[in-house]
Amino acid sequence: MSRKKLTAAPWSDRIFDLVVYVAITMVTIVTLYPFLNVLAISFNDSTDSIKGGITIYPRVFTLKNYETIFAYSGLMTGLKISILRTVTGTILGLISASMLAFTLSRVDFQARKFVSTFLALTMYVSGGLIPFYILIKNLEMMGTFGVYVLPSLVSAFNVFVIRSFIDGLPYALQESAKLDGANDFTIYWRIILPLTKPALATIALFLAVGQWNAWIDTYLYNGSKDTLTTLQYELMKVIQSTTTNADTFRGRNMTQVMAQISPESVKMAITIVVTVPILLVYPFLQRYFIKGMTLGSVKS
């Protein structure tokens, strides 16, 4: 917005400016301070932290908290599974959503209306927690890696975002490819997919963040399977274990870890480990997801 500065701003505008800056500064502090505080405590000596008074920098710097948590095998398994589900879930989710979006963008596709309605309805029907749990059980997906990827494979919202993007591409591209003898799958793979990159970047971010942050599926379906726990689930256990809601706590090894350094420092260090990947990714994709958000919410 290009607003020329008035030669003499009236006092009411100066107060207005002041209020704006004060409010914005406060919001920024309230948002950022908790993260910086957690970061500082995670690098601070755990016995020193108990004294309190750590703000945004460590008082007695140490890496011991991190050394301790990485020595705990559950965390390494969690890290491995979290990365694996994020990569698999994002790639498969992207292929599924874009493939489906491509077929729905084709006005000449006979089954278009049916597929489109069938998919749109999934946004509104929900069987609920327990029928879904029983379904997963009957499909014998309990205690499998597949339960992280398959049930959340397609989201109608994502499909519609990509479709509206494909709708904006010139159809002539598809037509000329067809004249060259390309079939519909080749058109999708060689022409549509490369051109849809900006929309795919947004969806990839949403999918990856969703996968990385998920923990309820681990809790419900894979909680007793040590080899399939995720990082978020491990963090959840640690956080819940020292609050009064201890009935969900199952980790024995973590109790031993916590005996060495204070639970507070363990929590903070794991929190940072879980948060850092997000921090590394989202600022760079900002322009994409803003576009995706505005497009998606108008279309749906």
């Binding site: 919001v27 920024t28 948002t31 950022l32 908790p34 993260f35 957690v38 963040v209 990385w212 942050n213 998920a214 923990w215 978020q232 963090l235 959840m236 956080i239 929590k267 929190t271 879980v274 948060t275 997000i278 921090l279 989202y282 900002q286």
Partner: peptide
């Protein structure tokens, strides 16, 4: 301001 949106509820609840 977008940062908290991207962290999980587990992290948020811990913080």
């Amino acid at each position: 301001s977008y940062l908290p949106h991207f962290v999980s509820w587990v992290v948020a609840a811990g913080i």
